[in-house]
Amino acid sequence: MPRVLIIEDDRAVRDGLRLALRRQGHEVTAAATGEDGLDQLRAFRPDVVILDLMLPGMPGLDVCRRIRAHDQVPIVMATARGDDTDIVVGLEAGADDYVVKPVKGRVLDARIRAVLRRAGGPPDDHAAPRPEHHGDLVIDRAGLTVAVQGRQVALGPSELRLLLTLSASPGQVFSRQQLLEAVWEHSYHGDARLVDACVKRLRSKIGESSERPRYVHTVRGFGYRFGVR
């Protein structure tokens, strides 16, 4: 039974989501503030966090960054606005997915189960028998680990799955839509923000810049490809 932590200050929304997710078979706990949410994170050890961006006291973005500083638990952020800036900033802060409120319980359940599938394994069923060496980057598909210059890199579920998808076919150009469907398992037609924000986080963690990337290269007007430069 997936364990879900909801961090939401609106009591009606919080109680509604808690009830809906329990009906979908989740074990749910909830917090009304970011500070309480961080305490619940340590005590409850959820499988996924539903995080409202508009929190009193400690803002949702700060909560997201605090979680990402020491934990790779999947985060689905909830926003009352579909504002591009809010969404992009939230994704760049470390969120794995987002929903715009109000959201139906079944839709949120589908997002939760998708992000948990991403956290649980690579995008295909074929585990590499040996770690792959791409210059200084080492990818172990069987162990789901990544290292750069011998140092283990902690990647979030979406970042890891994105890297596994791209590196499985070096040189192949993937459109943003192809990556949305392969990594996030949803159509999200035309919504490239998830991909671009995830690429930015991935590049930062494996130590490359957007201006001169060594591994994940932008194909302007189309998408991304993997290859050692």
Rank of each mutant, 00 (worst) to 15 (best):
P59N: 13
Y98R: 09
L17T: 02
L19Y: 08
R141C: 09
T85I: 11
L55A: 07
G150I: 00
D71E: 11
Q40I: 05
V103Q: 04
D96I: 06
H217L: 01
Y215M: 07
P123V: 12
R130L: 15
L38Y: 10
P59H: 00
V199C: 06
L116F: 07
D84T: 15
R22F: 06
Q177C: 02
Q72F: 06
H70K: 10
Q178A: 13
Q40P: 00
D86H: 12
P2E: 15
S204L: 12
L55H: 01
V146H: 03
G150Y: 09
M77E: 07
G57Y: 08
K200I: 07
K101L: 13
R3L: 13
S187K: 11
D15G: 00
C64P: 01
H26S: 13
D10N: 15
M54V: 04
I87A: 05
G34F: 09
V148N: 00
H134V: 12
D86F: 05
L137Y: 09
A78M: 15
D36Y: 06
H70R: 14
F174L: 03
G135L: 07
H189Y: 09
I50C: 14
R118H: 07
M1H: 12
R42N: 08
R225V: 06
D86I: 04
V195I: 10
G25M: 13
S210D: 12
G223R: 03
W184I: 07
E181T: 11
D84R: 14
G60H: 05
L160H: 03
Y224S: 02
I75N: 07
L162N: 01
E27M: 13
G227A: 12
Q178Y: 05
A197G: 03
G227D: 10
A168C: 10
K200C: 04
G57C: 09
V228R: 11
F174N: 01
P131N: 04
H186F: 14
I87W: 05
V13R: 02
A142W: 08
L51M: 09
R203D: 04
D47G: 09
V13E: 09
